[in-house]
Each structure stands twice: as structure tokens, then as C-alpha cells.
């Protein structure tokens, strides 16, 4: 008589747990698949060549930039508008510094390299609907750069370091004033130490440095601490990726795990790669669309992406975790 009652309790508990997980969407990445669902879109002319992008802290706006213009796109306006067009010449990076109360103008910083041979690099700060420029001081502004809550962090490749005196390619992260971002450099198993072969992105847990070439290794460095998480494509894939012109376009933080886009330079093929929160490679999805990720906001499960079709589309995705289907 007691067994049916115990069974029904278990079923009830299982139903409640499933419902709670579904309602809160807190299914772990290891247990589920990442589902990106498009939730917003800004359309730009097809000739715009987007280099990067950033989500606002509140998620109600985004920045994206080309080789000569920075735009801001808001959920409240259908069209994106240029930021400080009278000052911006050659943007190398842009970020929201802060977002005031609803209705207020955001504060934006842009690293501008200027016209080569004509202008000095500068930071253009957009605040209170005004654009002010201050001279850039610090590392070469053309180095891969990302901004965290404290300020800009630049990554450069060096051939220094390594065990037993053997030079090991390594990326070092420094702030504008020259302060090291992390006590030691970030080791990347790459065959060279070219800064152009490195991408950087920022996340809530620090800066992620990634190699643009196989094995597309990456490392997440936390401010003031040594390396925390690292990942790479398994060596068994070398024949596939090394024989074709594949390139990694950055690694971005999720609320559980990391996502990376690999692009075939000879076609529209893209691989969306998922790593778990320990940095272990888990799976990838193949799509045949020119597609890239620009930024993520793990706390809101929001992702900023770029799609090029007959025009350039700046996309906002929301993500959820979907349980694995049991295999029969």
C-alpha cells in the first residue's frame, strides 16, 4: 500500500523540479543545448563592414563599428545613428562606460586611431550628448583591446616566457597606464606571437584572449589574478581546420560556458563552438551563413551578433538551455 504513495511522491517531485527548471531556465549547460532565439534586428546597408560591437549594460542598446564609423542602435529606434561622426575617423574599439537612468543618454568611449600619419590616437568620449576627445596614452591603440568596468585592456603577443628558457608564445594584458591586467601573461599555444593573431573580448569574469588560428586556443584572465579557464579545439581536428583557411573570431562568455565562432574564409561556412564552464570542448553547430558574435551579456542571457545576407543585420538574440533528448 505504501509503495504507490512513494512512487506518486517521486513523480510529483520530478514534475515540480522539471517545472521549476523550465520556469527559471537554469538548466546547466552540461545538461542542455544552447538555444539562441532572435529577438531584435537593425538593418544596415550591405557595404557596411562591421568590425565589432558591444551591448549596453541595460540591454536596451548596442554599439557596432566599421573601419570609419561607430553606430548606436536602440530598441526604441528603428534606425541606428552614428556616434560622434564629426570626430570619429578610424575606430578601433567602443564600449558603453555606463548607462544612466531610463531616458538618459549613455556614456560611450571610442578608441580612435585617426588617419595614419595625420592624427594622433585618441579616446572619444560621448557623454551628455557631447563628444570630447582626449589623447590616447598607453600601448599601441591598434592592439586588440577590450573594456571592462575599470577601463581599457590591451593584448599583445610576446615571445617571452615559457618553461626551461624555451620561448613560448604568450599574450600579455595591460591597462592603459601600463599596469599588468593579470600577474602573468596568458599562454596561447600558437605558432607565432603576432598580435594580429589574437582576439580579445570582455565578460563579467574578466578578459578572454583567443588565438585566431588553430587550435583556436583561448584563455579567460580575471583582473589581478592568474588564468582561470582555458580551452581549445581538440587536436584531432587539426587536419580539417589547418588545411582550409579557418579563422577564429573571438570567444564570448555565457552564463554557463563559452561560445566561439570559427569562420571559413573561403566560404560562408561558420562553426559555432560550445565549451562548458571548465573550458572543455563540448560540441559545435555548422551553419552556412556569414555570421559572427559581437558581444554577450550573460546576466541577461543576451547575445549581439552580425549576419550578412543581402544587407548587414545587427541582431540581438536571447538564449535558453534546452534539455538533451534521451537517446533510445
Amino acid at each position: 500500500m505504501r509503495r504507490p504513495r512513494a512512487t506518486s511522491y517521486k513523480v510529483l517531485i520530478a514534475i515540480c523540479c522539471t517545472a521549476w527548471i523550465a520556469a527559471n531556465g537554469r538548466l546547466s549547460a552540461q545538461a542542455g543545448r544552447l538555444v539562441l532565439t532572435e529577438s531584435g534586428r537593425h538593418v544596415m546597408p550591405g557595404h557596411v563592414l562591421v568590425r565589432g560591437g558591444a551591448l549596453s549594460p541595460r540591454g536596451d542598446a548596442s554599439l557596432f563599428w566599421s573601419g570609419d564609423t561607430v553606430w548606436i542602435a536602440s530598441t526604441r529606434h528603428a534606425e541606428a545613428r552614428a556616434v560622434c561622426p564629426e570626430r570619429v575617423r578610424a575606430p578601433l574599439g567602443a564600449a558603453f562606460v555606463s548607462t544612466p537612468a531610463a531616458g538618459g543618454a549613455p556614456v560611450i568611449e571610442i578608441i580612435d586611431g585617426g588617419m595614419a600619419g595625420a592624427d594622433e590616437p585618441q579616446i572619444i568620449r560621448f557623454s551628455d550628448d557631447q563628444c570630447r576627445a582626449i589623447a590616447w596614452s598607453g600601448p599601441d591603440p591598434s592592439l586588440p583591446t577590450a573594456r571592462d568596468a575599470t577601463g581599457w585592456v590591451s593584448a599583445s603577443g610576446t615571445g617571452l616566457g615559457g618553461p626551461n628558457g624555451i620561448p613560448t608564445p604568450r599574450a600579455s594584458l595591460v591597462r592603459r597606464d601600463g599596469t599588468p591586467f593579470s600577474p602573468s601573461g596568458v599562454d596561447l599555444p600558437i605558432a607565432w606571437s603576432d598580435s594580429a593573431a589574437i582576439s580579445v573580448s570582455s565578460g563579467p569574469r574578466g578578459i578572454i584572449v583567443s588565438s585566431r588560428h588553430f587550435p583556436f586556443a583561448w584563455s579567460a584572465a580575471a583582473d589581478g589574478r592568474d588564468r582561470t579557464v582555458a580551452g581549445r579545439i581538440p587536436a584531432s581536428n587539426e587536419t580539417y581546420y589547418a588545411s582550409d583557411p579557418w579563422v577564429g573570431t573571438g570567444v564570448f562568455t555565457l552564463d554557463s560556458g563559452f561560445v566561439q565562432v570559427l569562420a571559413d574564409l573561403a566560404s560562408d561556412r561558420r562553426h559555432l563552438v560550445f565549451y562548458d564552464s571548465s573550458g572543455a570542448f563540448r560540441r559545435r553547430r555548422v551553419i552556412d551563413v556569414p555570421f559572427g558574435i559581437l558581444d554577450t551579456a550573460p546576466d541577461r542571457r543576451q547575445l549581439l551578433a552580425l549576419r550578412r545576407t543581402d544587407r548587414v543585420e545587427i541582431l540581438t538574440y536571447e538564449w535558453t538551455w534546452q534539455p538533451h533528448r534521451a537517446r533510445k
Binding site: 543545448r33 538555444v35 561560445v259 551553419i287 552556412d288 545576407t309 543581402d310
Partner: peptide, 20 residues
């Protein structure tokens, strides 16, 4: 590549939702 409007619409449809 220049995409036709049909191709572009198909690309949009294929990436409206992405499961990884």
C-alpha cells in the same frame, strides 16, 4: 557573393533560431 532576396530570406530563416 551577391544573394538574391530568396536566398537572403532563407539565410535569415535558418538563423532565426540556432541550437548549439
Amino acid at each position: 557573393r551577391a544573394y538574391s532576396s530568396d536566398e537572403a530570406e532563407d539565410m535569415r530563416r535558418r538563423t532565426e533560431s540556432i541550437v548549439i
